[in-house]
């Protein structure tokens, strides 16, 4: 864990309600880890999955879901934000030979970084990304270059007509292990279909570094904190 002021080098809208913020001055962080941003005027820090790391720069992708994320859209380039990064565990990339990556909504952030990390290792993953509709679809062009991509929308306005789990079931490509991040309902049905994978969970957090027990969940091996022992858990470990 590192607590540091990072400089906003870009903060722009990518799609309906979805933004990309790049922060410079950072150290390396592993795929699947998360960070917390102190949003000016708000008490609790906001947790975000890391969307990319390159050359001292962390990218986050965020969705406007409340006052805090709304305020973040107004942060201008050059602003120094207090960021606590290198939080949580991360994905275990060693477990897959033919990885399948699945995201729902803004869960695409850590999935995108993981896809980039696999690409760096010379592995071309299968990536399934799900969105509500075409206006929310992001990162397709970037992912197409490094992965076999299936985009799905709930309303069929782009790509596969249906949710990511249905798209996974309909895949004609082989995979041996999956990595997923998305809404709880997606994770639940994915886990029901197969528990050979890892789930990156989301939770309302107090601190984000293990102090408050605000995000504890029940697992097969006892109580675990999403922020500390997670956010990535073995699919067969968690009860959703």
């Amino acid at each position: 864990m590192i607590s540091k002021k990072l400089t906003v080098v870009s903060n722009k809208k990518l799609a309906d309600g979805i933004y990309e913020m790049r922060l410079s001055g950072a150290d390396y962080v592993v795929p699947g880890s998360f960070l917390e941003v102190t949003v000016p005027g708000f008490y609790l820090n906001r947790p975000f999955g890391v969307g990319n790391y390159e050359d001292g720069e962390i990218t986050i992708y965020y969705k406007v879901v409340g006052n805090g994320t709304d305020k973040m859209t107004e942060v201008s380039v050059g602003t120094k934000l207090n960021v606590i990064y290198g939080l949580g565990n991360g994905f275990n990339m060693e477990r897959a030979i033919r990885p399948l990556l699945v995201s729902g909504g803004i869960g695409i952030a850590p999935i995108y970084y993981l896809a980039k990390a696999f690409a760096k290792k010379g592995v071309r993953p299968i990536v399934v990304t799900g969105f509500r509709n075409a206006s929310e679809v992001v990162l397709s062009n970037e992912l197409k270059e490094i992965a076999d991509l299936v985009v799905c929308t709930d309303d069929g306005s782009m790509g596969f007509n249906g949710n990511p789990v249905s798209a996974v079931k309909a895949l004609d490509k082989e995979w041996d292990y999956y990595y997923a991040c998305g809404p709880m309902v997606m994770m639940k049905y994915l886990k029901m279909y197969s528990d050979k994978g890892e789930l990156s969970l989301e939770a309302r957090m107090g601190c984000g570094f293990g102090a408050c027990m605000g995000c504890s969940i029940i697992t097969k091996s006892g109580y675990k904190r999403v922020c500390k022992e997670g956010p990535v858990f073995d699919a067969d470990e968690v009860e959703l």
Partner: peptide
């Protein structure tokens, strides 16, 4: 174990917690 999630809600200048003595 304490209370079910969510256990945390933000407020102006603070937070509400209901951890439930985990």
């Amino acid at each position: 174990y304490g209370n079910p999630l969510p256990r945390i809600a933000e407020c102006p200048n603070g937070l509400i917690n209901a951890i439930g003595l985990q």
